[in-house]
Amino acid sequence: MRIYSYNNDGELLPEEIDTINRLMNIPLDSLNLEAIAVVTNIYRVAQGLRNKMEQKVLSEYGLSWTAFSMLYDMWIGDSVETKKLAELAGVSKATISNITKTLEQKELCYRKNDPRDRRVTYVALTPKGKQVMEALYPKFHQNEVEIVSSLTIDEQKRMTTSLRKVIRDNDF
């Protein structure tokens, strides 16, 4: 059985139709198509956003999404513990260590140990790293605005509220 559904705003995305049609052949007690659509679309937006930003903005600076994320967190929070950087970026401490080495080679950041506990390492921006972020962020933000430009401010606010709820309820 093939399903061709429409939502309130028009035809579903072709990928959503394909997903629904595939899942209708699987015997499930209760199929929550809305949950599938939300999670799938969040994933697609996240991947698309990451790819677009890497190609349009970050490539000019030779940065990956995770490297930018680290620089951004250091820019906002001054020095940040490597464990916290890993949590914020959703990667392992080993990944943070490898990216930190690359960023150190580019003279964008440096490591420092906690004087009270040598096992704890912080990473901070160098003056060059601060300059890069001050030049990079306006371009990054311009693309953020472009990405959501088809949404009204009220739609953006509602989406933000909903996403924050998902983040809080799942400890993301």
Rank of each mutant, 00 (worst) to 15 (best):
Q55G: 02
E146V: 13
V38G: 00
N98K: 10
N8G: 03
E11G: 10
N113A: 11
A89N: 13
K56F: 02
D18S: 05
V132I: 09
A135M: 05
R116A: 13
N98R: 11
S162C: 02
S64I: 06
Q156L: 11
A37M: 09
Q131E: 11
S92K: 05
Y122G: 08
N8L: 07
S30F: 15
R22L: 08
T66H: 05
D18G: 07
R44K: 07
E155W: 00
E60I: 15
S64D: 07
Q55M: 13
L63N: 04
R50P: 00
V45M: 13
R168P: 00
R111L: 09
E54M: 02
E87F: 06
N21L: 02
T66D: 12
G48E: 01
Y137S: 08
A124S: 08
K101V: 15
E107P: 03
V91P: 01
L88H: 04
L108Q: 04
E34R: 14
K101F: 15
V91W: 04
D171T: 07
Y110G: 13
K139V: 12
Y6K: 03
Q55A: 12
L136D: 14
R158W: 05
M133R: 05
D114W: 13
Q47W: 01
D171Q: 08
D29N: 14
K139D: 09
A135H: 14
L125M: 08
K83E: 12
I26C: 04
N113W: 01
P27F: 03
